[in-house]
């Protein structure tokens, strides 16, 4: 007994040692070694890189910061020369007057908000639904035409709605969709990028799971929504972000000319068109508009990184 206990202790010790070493290899050795190497390379290099990153970061974030800042400045601080990069007496007066201005518009603000929320919700949900269904089939089944469709999707990543909208305008005019909610919603539903990301993510799921469900008698729709999609939460969150962003930025443009059908970005245009006197209000609107996508992104950032990791194009 004594011997075996001793042996056990020995074993445990050895195991602990091994674990320690392994964790050292895993965590410290790799990183410390890399860090050391980096330091050896040049401390100056690291500092330069950091300065470069910070400068670029300032360039990227400054306009957003300035917009947020201006939206909280009272009128006497807005027009100080030269403009200050801080605010002494933050106020919500710009936000209040935004609602005041908006309520005196011909179409009430609530209608714009409704349009924006309605369009965003419908696009986001239908986009995710449609892309998931198609992505699942493309990732896991081979059928006549699947290869061609896959190729077309990869090519279609090139053609963003930026480049397409003039031709889309013609198509929609032919279909009689101009000046309806359809014109706002339908073009943003079938998004090649979302389909592509979802397909890449689903193809990493094991076939055995699908096979098991199939043997149990689940139909293709059930397999997709009961098994596969619940197992690709990160990808779903990513789709949510991209769909939401696209939907939230939807503007009528030339597709919609009735004021009652326009979305929130249009309001911002109207207010900003009134020029310098409403600078604070314009920024208040801009800030309100940029908050929803930023919040959605912050919540789901980790998931996005996980999904994008599978996004590579392989031929």
């Amino acid at each position: 007994m004594g011997l075996s206990e001793k042996e056990k202790k020995k074993q445990e010790k050895a195991l602990a040692k091994l674990r320690k070493r392994q964790s050292k290899i895993n965590i410290e050795k790799l990183h410390v070694k890399k860090n050391k190497k980096r330091a050896n390379g040049s401390t100056a290099g690291t500092v330069t890189i950091f300065i470069f990153l910070i400068l670029l970061g300032i360039f990227m974030i400054f306009p957003l910061y300035y917009a947020i800042l201006q939206s909280f400045k009272p009128i006497h601080e807005l027009f100080v020369f030269p403009p200050k990069l801080y605010v002494l007496e933050p106020t919500l007066v710009n936000y209040e007057s935004m609602f005041k201005i908006a309520s005196s518009l011909w179409v009430p603000l609530s209608r714009y908000i409704f349009n924006s929320v309605f369009v965003t919700v419908v696009i986001t949900i239908s986009n995710m639904f449609v892309c998931c269904c198609a992505a699942f089939v493309l990732a896991k089944y081979r059928f006549p035409g699947s290869g061609a469709i896959n190729k077309i999707i990869v090519t279609a990543l090139l053609f963003t709605s930026n480049a397409l909208w003039i031709m889309q305008f013609l198509v929609m005019a032919t279909l009689g969709m101009i000046d309806t909610y359809w014109a706002l919603i339908l073009p943003s539903v079938a998004m090649p990028m979302n389909l592509f990301l979802m397909r890449q993510s689903i193809s990493t799921i094991h076939d055995s799971m699908i096979e098991a469900a199939r043997v149990d008698g689940a139909g293709i729709f059930r397999i997709c929504w009961g098994i596969v999609i619940p197992n690709s939460k990160p990808a779903m969150m990513t789709l949510l972000i991209f769909a939401f962003q696209a939907a939230w930025a939807v503007q009528g443009g030339v597709l919609v000319y009735s004021e009652e059908l326009k979305t929130l970005p249009t309001i911002m245009q109207q207010i900003s068109a009134s020029g310098i006197a409403r600078q604070g209000v314009t920024f208040a609107t801009a800030v309100l508009l940029m908050i929803p996508p930023l919040v959605v992104f912050m919540i789901a950032q980790g998931n996005v990184m996980e999904t994008m990791a599978n996004s590579g194009i392989k031929d």
Binding site: P63, L64, Y66, A67, Q245, W248, A249, P265, M268, Q269, S272, T282, F283, T285, A286, L289, M290, P293, L294, F297
Partner: peptide
């Protein structure tokens, strides 16, 4: 992600 780019 900012839809209000140009105004800013």
């Amino acid at each position: 992600m900012t839809p209000s780019v140009y105004v800013i």
